[in-house]
Amino acid sequence: MTAEKGTGPTRPSAGAGSLALTGSASLNVGVASLRYDHRCWKVHWNHVLRAYSALEADYQNLVDRNKMMFDVDAFFIFSTHLHEWMKRDMAKECMLTPEQLNELNRLFYTDPALVLGKDIANTQKHHTRTGGRMAFVAEVSVYFVGQRAEAQIQVVGEDAPKDALGLATQAVASWQAFIDDHKLQPT
C-alpha cells in the first residue's frame, strides 16, 4: 500500500486491499500479536486452568444451561488433551524424560477423574461411541435460592450422577500433583 501526500493527512491510496479515506479523516491502526514458535504443553496447562476457572464461576452464578454444558465439555476436552501435549512435546524446555512419560501414561489411564474426563471428552467429540464408556452432562441445575448452578455428569450404565465441578477439581489436583511431583515448571 502506498501513501499519497497532499495538504491533509497522509492517506493510503485506493487499490486492491487498501482503504481510501476522504476529507480530513484519519485512521489509527494498531496490531498486537503473540507468536508461538513452539506450542509447549505449558500453554495448554494454562488453558486447563482457565477452563476450570470458568466452570467454578458458573457454579457461583446463574448461568444458562448451554453455557454450563459448554464449560463442562471445554474443561474436560482441555484436560484430556493435556496428556497428548505433554507426551508429544519434544522441545528441550518442555520434554518429559522417559520415566516421566511412563508415569504420565500410568496417571492418565488409571486416575479415576482423568479416565472419566477422557470419557466425557470422547463422548462430546463423537455423535455415537462404538467403544468405551459414554459420559455426558445429563443435568444442569440452576438454584435461584442461593443463586448458584451445578452440572451433573451421567455415566451410561451407572445410577448415580457425578458432580461436574467436583470431578474437574479432582482432575486439576491430579495434574497439579504430577507437575509438582516431577518438579516441572508450568510457566
Rank of each mutant, 00 (worst) to 15 (best):
L34H: 08
D71I: 02
D111L: 03
Y36C: 09
R148K: 08
M134S: 14
Y109S: 14
E139Q: 13
L167I: 01
F136I: 05
L116M: 09
D58F: 00
V137F: 04
V145K: 15
P112M: 05
A177F: 00
W41H: 00
F70G: 02
M134K: 15
Q170D: 15
V156G: 01
L21P: 04
A177Q: 13
R88V: 12
V156R: 15
Q170C: 11
L101N: 12
M68P: 03
D180P: 01
L165M: 10
L184K: 07
Q100C: 05
N61G: 01
D71M: 05
R129Y: 00
V31I: 08
F78M: 07
E139Y: 02
H127Y: 13
E4F: 01
K125N: 09
H81Y: 06
Y52H: 09
V156Q: 14
L96M: 06
A16M: 11
W85Y: 13
P186A: 09
D37M: 10
A25Y: 11
A138G: 14
E56P: 04
G30C: 06
K118R: 15
L62G: 08
Y52W: 05
R35K: 11
A14F: 13
I77C: 04
T130I: 08
L104S: 00
M69G: 10
D37V: 11
V31M: 02
A164K: 05
S174C: 01
P98N: 12
T169M: 02
R129N: 12
K183S: 14
P98L: 09
G6Y: 12
A177K: 14
R88I: 06
A32F: 09
P186R: 05
S141I: 07
T187H: 13
G17P: 03
E158Q: 15
P9Q: 08
V172K: 08
A151D: 03
Y109L: 13
A177D: 10
S53I: 05
D119W: 03
Q124C: 01
L116V: 10
A16G: 14
L82N: 04
Q154M: 12
C94T: 01
M68A: 11
C94N: 12
P98T: 09
A121K: 09
E93F: 08
F70W: 05
D163C: 09
V63F: 00
Y52A: 07
H127E: 09
G6V: 02
R88L: 15
V156N: 06
L101H: 11
R88M: 15
